[in-house]
Amino acid sequence: MGVGEVVAEFGGVYVSSLLSTWLMTIVCFAGGLALGVLVTIMRVSPIKPLRVVGDFYVQVFRNIPTISLLVIFVYALPYLGLLLDYRTCLIVCIILVVASFASENFMSGINAIGVGQIEAARSVGLSFSQIVRLIVIPQALRTTVLPMTNLLIATLLTTAIGSQVPLTPPELTGMVNYVNARSVAGISAFVVSAICYAGTALLLGFLGNKLDKKVRIVR
């Protein structure tokens, strides 16, 4: 079976698979950023326990293999009285992991600002909340465009672990399995999924680079 035939026979499933992969990537990335902001706030706060918990969170979730986390969510949590459907498990796991990397990116974005600018802002008479709103957040966001783009691409690739749980429609990696179970597609199924991944990653990389050029802070 050639690529053309695979597309002809499974085209509809592929489109919904691609869309569902994209949607999952966006949801996981957005959720990861939001949680990452929260973790970062904890890590820079003057309240010691929050700092410790934030640091601990990052060490746990940047070091745990996502598959290991997924099996805990899918198989272990039901024993502890928490039963989530497969897609929810998957999304929550990826969000937890993405948040730890997002927080690391935010932290290095904040570190890049430098103590001097904060002191200057203080000297002008800006309040703490003004300093955060006018100096810290804008600079941290603008310096993290490239790392965050890479994290978005990494999120896309991480959704491939969705192939380890039953999903309808399957995401792009699960599609190889799906097509193979139903026909003798061989290499073609792989090629179509690969093109979808590489195309998406290329597009995201291109957009991220463009955005970075626009907002990059020259130091």
């Binding site: 001097g116 002191e119 200057a120 000297s123 100096i135 020259v218």
Partner: peptide, 13 residues
């Protein structure tokens, strides 16, 4: 009170 620093500390963005 105005303050001028050794390393200028202008807001980079």
């Amino acid at each position: 009170i105005g303050m001028v620093f050794q390393s200028f500390n202008l807001f980079a963005h």
